[in-house]
Computed example of a mutant assay.
Amino acid sequence: MKLKLLGVSLCLGALALSGCASKYVPPEQYSGFLKDYSVLKEDKSPSDAPVMRWIKPGIDVSKFTSVYVEPSQLYPQPQPSEKIPQSTLDGITKYYDQTLKTQFSKVLPLAEGPGPGVLIVRPAITAVSASTKGLQPYEVIPIALIAAGVSTATGIRDQDTSIATEAAFLDGSDGRVVAEVVRKGAGTELENSAQVMSANDAKALLDGWARDMVKSFESLKRK
Rank of each mutant, 00 (worst) to 15 (best):
K2D: 14
L6M: 12
G7C: 04
S9Y: 09
S9V: 08
S9Q: 11
L12Y: 13
A16N: 07
L17M: 13
L17W: 10
S18H: 15
C20N: 10
Y24P: 12
E28P: 13
Y30M: 11
S31Q: 03
G32W: 11
D36W: 14
S38N: 12
K41Y: 15
K41H: 15
E42K: 11
K44S: 06
K44D: 10
S45V: 02
S45I: 04
P46M: 03
S47R: 03
K56F: 02
K56L: 08
P57K: 07
I59N: 02
D60V: 03
V61Q: 05
S62L: 12
K63T: 06
V69R: 00
E70D: 06
P71G: 06
Q73C: 02
P76V: 00
P80Y: 15
P80E: 15
Q86L: 15
S87R: 03
T88S: 01
D90G: 01
I92A: 02
T93S: 04
T93E: 03
Y95L: 14
Y96M: 13
D97W: 00
T99M: 13
T102P: 14
K106V: 01
V107E: 01
L110A: 05
A111R: 01
E112M: 04
E112Q: 11
G113M: 07
P116M: 14
V118W: 00
V118T: 01
V121A: 13
P123D: 01
I125Q: 05
T126Q: 12
A130S: 12
A130W: 05
S131V: 05
T132N: 05
T132R: 03
G134Q: 07
L135A: 09
L135F: 10
Q136Y: 05
Q136A: 02
P137I: 00
A144S: 13
L145M: 06
V150G: 03
S151I: 11
S151T: 09
D158A: 13
D158Y: 10
Q159E: 15
D160E: 15
A167L: 07
A168C: 14
D171C: 04
D171S: 07
G175H: 02
A179V: 01
V182N: 03
A186Y: 07
G187T: 08
T188E: 15
T188K: 12
A194R: 11
A194L: 13
M197C: 09
M197S: 08
N200C: 11
D201H: 04
A202V: 08
K203W: 02
D207C: 11
W209Y: 09
R211P: 08
D212I: 02
V214L: 10
V214A: 07
K223A: 14
K223N: 14
